[in-house]
Simulated scan of single mutants.
Amino acid sequence: MSRIENQFTVHFWGVRGSIPCPGPHTVRYGGNTPCVEMRVGGRRLIFDGGTGLHVLGQSLLPNMPIEAHVFFTHSHWDHMQGFPFFSPGFVKGNTFHIYGAIAPDGSTIEQRLNDQMLHPNFPVPLQIMQANLDFYDVISGRPIHIHDIIIETAPLNHPGEAVGYRVNWRGGAVAYITDTEHYSDRLDENALRLARNADILIYDCTYTDEEYNSPIQPKIGWGHSTWQEGVKIARSANVKTLVIFHHDPSHDDEFLDRVGQEAAQKFPSAIMAREGMVVQVPVPVPLSESFPIRKFSTYRLQSEQL
C-alpha cells in the first residue's frame, strides 16, 4: 500500500460564504465560495461545489481520468455555482458520484443542478457533461459507506435545510458543518454529534457575536453561526482543531486576522480557513506497513500551500 493510500488530508479550495469576493483585500484568505476536498485512503471526496470547485477542477485536469464523490450540503448558490464550471465534468471517462438531500419542495440534487444550467441562467444544459454522473439521495441521519470510509450525516439549522457531514476513516475524523445557525438557549445536538472527538471541525463561523446580535442589522435567522459559537461546539465536543470557515464576504484579510487572533486566545488550536491550505489528519499506520510506525498520542497539524 502506498503512502497516498495511508493518508487522510483536507484541502481547502473555497472558504468564503454568500458570494465570491476576489480582490486586493481578500488575497490571503481567498474569495472563492465553499469547496473542501478530502483525500481519504486514496479516494477523493469533495464537499460543496462553490466557485472553489472550478479551481479544484483545473488542478485535476492533468490527472485524468478522475473518480470522486461529491457531497452537497444544500443548493444555495454559493454552494453550487461552481458546478457548471467544473471542467472534469465535461470530459468523458471521468466518474463523479454526487450526493445531496431532497429539498423541502421535493426536488433532488440532480434536478437542482440541472435547473441552474437551464436557459436563461446558463448557455449549456447539464446533459452536455460527458463524464459519468451518478446521483444519490442523502437521508439525514443515515450513514454513507464508501469502502472503508464511513460518512455520517445530520440535519443542520439553515433556511431551506442543509446537511452536515462527518468523515470517519481508520480512527481519524473530520466534521464538515456549514451552513448552520446556532441556538440561543442550547448547543446544537446534531452539530455536537457530528463533531464529537473529531480531529478537525470545519464550522460555519460567518459572523462575530457582535454582528449576529447587532442592534442595527442583526443576523438572527439568516442561517449562519459565529466563531464564538464554533469555539463552544469545539470545546464541548472535545475537538482537537477548529477550522473557522465560511467567511463573510465583507470580512477582509485584516478583519480575519483579528478573528484568528481572538479565536486562538479562546481555543488555542483554532485556525482560519484559507484557500490553498492543506491539513493532514493523523491516522494509525497498519503494522503491516514497511515504513516506520509513528504513535499519534497528540494531535499534529500540517499546513502547506497546494
Rank of each mutant, 00 (worst) to 15 (best):
residue 156 L to P: 03
residue 149 I to V: 12
residue 197 N to G: 10
residue 176 Y to V: 04
residue 283 V to F: 01
residue 100 G to M: 01
residue 29 Y to P: 01
residue 287 L to F: 05
residue 304 E to Q: 14
residue 30 G to M: 08
residue 232 K to S: 05
residue 236 S to L: 09
residue 47 F to A: 06
residue 32 N to F: 03
residue 220 I to L: 06
residue 4 I to D: 14
residue 137 D to G: 05
residue 281 V to E: 01
residue 93 G to S: 12
residue 54 H to K: 15
residue 68 A to S: 12
residue 261 Q to L: 09
residue 174 V to W: 00
residue 10 V to H: 00
residue 218 P to Y: 04
residue 91 V to G: 05
residue 150 I to G: 00
residue 265 Q to V: 13
residue 17 G to L: 04
residue 203 Y to G: 08
residue 226 T to F: 03
residue 203 Y to R: 07
residue 192 L to P: 00
residue 60 L to Y: 10
residue 148 D to E: 05
residue 238 N to S: 15
residue 113 L to E: 01
residue 185 D to M: 04
residue 152 E to D: 10
residue 273 A to E: 08
residue 136 Y to L: 06
residue 116 Q to M: 15
residue 47 F to D: 03
residue 180 T to N: 14
residue 66 I to W: 05
residue 293 I to A: 14
residue 248 D to V: 02
residue 10 V to A: 13
residue 62 P to Q: 08
residue 54 H to Y: 09
residue 148 D to S: 01
residue 52 G to Y: 14
residue 81 Q to M: 12
residue 238 N to M: 09
residue 162 A to G: 09
residue 39 R to V: 04
residue 52 G to L: 11
residue 273 A to C: 06
residue 30 G to P: 04
residue 164 G to R: 01
residue 181 E to R: 01
residue 245 F to K: 08
residue 113 L to A: 02
residue 208 T to C: 14
residue 64 M to E: 14
residue 163 V to H: 05
residue 233 I to N: 01
residue 262 E to I: 10
residue 77 W to G: 10
residue 220 I to F: 05
residue 207 Y to S: 07
residue 40 V to H: 03
residue 262 E to R: 07
residue 271 I to Y: 07
residue 287 L to T: 00
residue 264 A to H: 13
residue 245 F to E: 15
residue 41 G to F: 00
residue 123 P to E: 12
residue 93 G to Q: 07
residue 293 I to G: 01
residue 242 L to Q: 10
residue 236 S to V: 06
residue 58 Q to Y: 10
residue 18 S to W: 10
residue 76 H to I: 08
residue 213 N to D: 13
residue 281 V to I: 14
residue 77 W to V: 09
residue 86 F to V: 02
residue 2 S to C: 07
residue 68 A to V: 10
residue 180 T to Y: 02
residue 56 L to W: 13
residue 31 G to H: 04
residue 257 D to I: 04
